[in-house]
Design a binder for these strands. Structure first.
Length: 129
DNA sequence: GTTCTTACA
DNA sequence: TGTAAGCA
């Protein structure tokens, strides 16, 4: 039987993105839906690809990284390469995010200090007047 | 009503 | 990516 297809709005609503987003991904070469005249027709593979791209984006991967990983798909050989590559990226992301968290904690600490200084200065001013 | 392209923010 | 214009 013929493969199920989807319109751009079908996928947009399913994944909670706008049609603009999907067309944008196409411009970037992340997906290449077949055309029926002018209309884009997405097949199951296109659908999965978009789903994977959005998943990658959620974990901090750039669109380019998503494509790199997705295009490594190689079921003929376990996908070992792709999986190892993905694991490496995940570890890298984790390290970066943890560093960012430390940086933010430091800034928060700095804010606490400044705020405390300001408040004590106000308290003294109030006591003097 | 839905999708498309193009262009600007 | 959002938004808008002008088509089909």
């Amino acid at each position: 039987m013929p493969e199920k297809t989807y319109s751009i709005s079908d996928l947009a609503s399913e994944f909670g993105v706008t049609t603009r987003t999907i067309r944008f991904y196409e411009e970037k070469g992340l997906v290449t839906p077949r055309r029926e005249g002018q209309k884009r027709l997405y097949n199951q593979a296109d659908r999965v690809r978009i789903k994977l791209i959005l998943r990658g984006k959620r974990i901090g991967m750039t669109l380019d990284e998503c494509v790199e990983v997705i295009d490594m798909y190689d079921p003929e050989h376990n996908n070992a390469e792709q999986l190892h590559s993905l694991i490496a990226r995940v570890q890298d992301k984790r390290a970066r995010f943890e560093q960012q968290r430390r940086d933010i904690d430091e800034m928060l600490k700095g804010l606490d200090e400044v705020q405390a200084l300001c408040e004590s200065a106000l308290a003294e001013a109030g006591a003097a007047n």
